[in-house]
Design a protein around this nucleic acid. Structure first.
Lengths: 234, 234
DNA sequence: CTTTGGTTCCATTTTTTGATTGAACTGCTA
DNA sequence: TAGCAGTTCAATCAAAAAATGGAACCAAAG
């Protein structure tokens, strides 16, 4: 509890926290350059100078927003991992995709801001990226794609990013895609979940099955035999 | 050959075309609000007023850029479809992913601009979207996911968008992801292709196999038999 | 009651940005 | 050669946007 960010989040009613929340939404919707400090101040119902008093200049506020959003995302990922830990890969993916999709649809600014950071540049060289923690390594570890969360292979990282981006895309692009498909929100959310599961799960489950099969007979077998062949491989 | 856009593209050396090209790159990198007309003019090496003389105001130029990029994307998709037409689904996906990935890596502004349009709003209500053709329906048809390119099911559309976005993500995010993974460009491109194929192909091929199996024997078969059962389904 | 620190707003400054104007230059044609 | 259409640029304007300074307000401490 030291940074101004944590301080602001401690009391969500505080002016500092209210500004941060409004900034999250507006930066998420319009991006850094598409957002003016006036828009944020107006959303909160305060004067611009109050905003500057609390958060310094626009860059500082943006930086705080990115960190804040990343914190929340990290917390949620940890929560999900606790729940699915121990289940089979297919089960883990099913539950994780459900939970994360629900969470992100409740907080679409998170997806918006994550993607904007990947895909769009800022004119100022605000290189805050090195301060923002990356979770892909941890997810790769949790999925069994990496022996060590700190040293995941590029391939494992890419696979994890495919999953995360798959979610972010449909959540961040809701306005665009949902209008195109003419669906109401609930239908859209369900369809996103189904599509993500349809696309993502087979690849991973199939590969897991293959590495297992390599050292055993093709047909189904007893649990004991499975365990043996599993320990044999790798 | 009537619109100012087509006119400009006819002669790529013309000032109008040079401005359009520069605008593609800069709008793609920084987004609409992150780009200033001065940045574009400077890139071309001309005065701002020359830019306005040729393209009107910033909105008009942006609109032209979006249309231009979309034209190019449509042309390339058509080219790829011509080549892979008739092959098996797995073969089609393999080749299409290879070709489209190569093409987009050569023209990353396309991916940039497509994604920015999905994920980021513009302050002005420049509703150009209704003018911009959507290819997802045609791809769905070409993949056999829809009986009619004009009336694809939402589910088919979502599946196609998963594929397209999967590509766009890694191309548009190259700077970010490649720096993170510390790979040179060639390695990164290869890894993108492998990852996309690994993630995307199994889901579709598996489903196709399932619907096929319903009307034929499970084990592998000769190419002749395969062809027969292929024509039987659908 | 007075002081003090923290907070907010109003008014203003400075910088950036989009857009226009008019002069100058070009090559072509009558 | 004079005239003209098409282009380009320097200079400038007007609006938007970031940021600041100082007055006013308020609640708690002395």
């Amino acid at each position: 509890m030291r940074s101004p960010l944590e301080k602001a989040r401690k009391n969500p009613e505080s002016m500092k926290a209210r500004i941060l929340t409004a900034a999250r939404h507006i930066f998420g919707e319009y991006g850094f350059h598409g957002t003016t400090t006036r828009m944020i101040a107006k959303e909160v119902g305060i004067d611009i100078s109050t905003l500057h008093y609390h958060w310094g200049d626009k860059n500082d506020l943006y930086e705080a927003v990115v960190m804040d959003v990343n914190n929340d995302l990290g917390k949620e990922l940890l929560k999900v991992e606790k729940i699915v830990h121990g289940s089979s890969l297919e089960e883990r993916m099913n539950i994780s995709l459900d939970m994360m999709t629900d969470y992100l649809f409740d907080h679409p600014e998170i997806s918006n801001l994550v993607l904007l950071r990947y895909f769009s540049k800022t004119r100022n060289e605000v290189d805050i990226d090195f301060k923002v923690p990356e979770f892909s390594g941890d997810i790769a570890y949790a999925m069994g794609l990496a022996k060590d969360a700190k040293n995941p292979s590029p391939r494992a990282m890419m696979e994890v990013m495919s999953i995360m981006n798959g979610m972010h895309n449909f959540i961040s692009g809701e306005n665009y895609f949902r209008l195109m498909l003419k669906l109401d929100r609930k239908c859209y959310i369900d369809l996103v979940k189904e599509t993500l599961k349809f696309i993502l799960i087979p690849a991973f489950v199939l590969r897991e099955g293959k590495t297992k099969k390599e050292v055993s007979r093709p047909p189904s077998k007893t649990a004991k035999e499975k365990k043996k062949s599993q320990s044999k491989q790798s």
